[in-house]
Design a protein around this nucleic acid. Sequence first.
DNA 1: CTCACACCTGAAAGATATTTTCGGCTCCTT
DNA 2: AAGGAGCCGAAAATATCTTTCAGGTGTGAG
Lengths: 298, 298
Amino acid sequence: MGGSQAPAPAALAAKVRTLAPSMTRSMQRVAEAVAGDPAGCAALTVTGLAERTGTSEATVVRTARLLGYPGYRDLRLALAGLAAQQQSGRAPAVTADIAVDDPLSDVVAKLAYDEQQTLADTAAGLDMTQLGAAVTALSAARRVEIYGVAASGLVAQDLAQKLLRIGHIAHAHSDPHLAVTNAVTLRSGDVAIAITHSGSTGDIIEPLRVAFEHGATTIAVTGRPDSPVTQYADHILTTSTARESELRPAAMSSRTSQLLVVDCLFVGVAQRTYETAAPALAASYEALAHRHSPRTTR
Amino acid sequence: MGGSQAPAPAALAAKVRTLAPSMTRSMQRVAEAVAGDPAGCAALTVTGLAERTGTSEATVVRTARLLGYPGYRDLRLALAGLAAQQQSGRAPAVTADIAVDDPLSDVVAKLAYDEQQTLADTAAGLDMTQLGAAVTALSAARRVEIYGVAASGLVAQDLAQKLLRIGHIAHAHSDPHLAVTNAVTLRSGDVAIAITHSGSTGDIIEPLRVAFEHGATTIAVTGRPDSPVTQYADHILTTSTARESELRPAAMSSRTSQLLVVDCLFVGVAQRTYETAAPALAASYEALAHRHSPRTTR
DNA sequence: CTCACACCTGAAAGATATTTTCGGCTCCTT
DNA sequence: AAGGAGCCGAAAATATCTTTCAGGTGTGAG
């Protein structure tokens, strides 16, 4: 039930970053070479790439498999495609890290660029099958419980707020103990969602496990599709992982990525349950209108 | 003109037309198939393409040679590149609104595109002078209080979490009454931030007004620089407003925009107070490490 | 501190795909 | 109608990719 099986044409760099942590040293060398110079690597045979990375053919093939391709041949084709896209596409990028002495205008530009990149990577890497299944489960759910702590806790709340606005019963939990207590009450027909970037946050795995074992449909939103949390997930939605730096904690880009996924879930559910969602949206909008004072101008 | 022996990436169709007259019948069939469906042919092996065109492997190789490639392998690579280019070329048709019957893949593409657009707009529209002043005030603040409700409440919490992690005293408030109570205790040297998209949410204006009148430095993060909330704001940071639709509430893009602004504030403050921020970041990272269970692999 | 285990790693064997060779065939020329 | 030039594909030869297996390395338990 792992990541997507579709060959990723443009999302390769993202996939490399996502899977890199679960790779062995040699495989990382191969993945790095491939992500760093797609065009150059596309010109090489298995043996050539093995030599260039100081590894063996077997390792190259293994890496290709891990990245989701049937074998090296297919990875090579994807590489050629990627190279062509880069060629025709825009200039590489100004991907420099944020430095302590960057002027504010640079900070803004770099942050905006990085988040845009994260969005593109996430969209490209999302498995539509998994997403569809998750939307289906959510649309039919009696109630939805969402677990997340810290930055992911905010994403959980965001989703809960949105689902509530279209008439679904949804709650977010940040307190690990209460989350487990809550998970115990779930059963078949309910949905539990765990949001965790690392996928190995014990406080979040536990409630999902409990929900899973009580028969609820479980969904994991994580940046690590091979992490512990996925053992208890019926559906896995992978968020992208951008490089981080001292001044740019991982939480920043993972949050952007998670929010996009959550938005997709929301819109998907809203589509599926349009008959009830539309009036509910209108009603909640109406109810809040009086809380706003008249505008100053215009 | 035609680069005779150089592998043609995009000009393949043209080359086929140019060379077609000098081809034999079987070769023309192959060339035609290749030019007509690059993506499909890239997926085929020599034998496969030979069968599909009703010819033999030898003919396929001969055709590849005639088109300027060393062999079929290289033609296939070029084909993959061409396919990828075509693919990406017809992408930018996602500017339409999200419809009820859009397939999920369109939903994802449109959402990602819209959020990217929002980010670009926000970055372009940010007033660096105001941002700089806000960062200066925050860096020197004794404590920071942040007010926001609903979706903006989550942004407020996000900022509070981040500032806490770099050793600043910061709290987010969603409860209007508690917010006002809290604002009363502020004075010169403290900073209050109001986050509201409309700029006319009474529950948020009120605490900012109180903070303003008690001498605190006040910052407004709003999408409406002419709205009531700005009367009480020393510094105004403008977020961008994307068009919204029934299935895409305003909260979605305003949140993206607000988060970017908040991230800029955070990084700005982290830069200015690097001496204390860096160790604090490292310490909080360290403290959370034990909450993560060991990885599945490695 | 030592041992045992699990896992990564690469060499070589095995399987596929590509390229070359070569003889039959068609079609044109005279 | 006969000869010949060149096209075409089957099968051999080669290159490339994949799998298997055994050696090595680091890690955790005792």
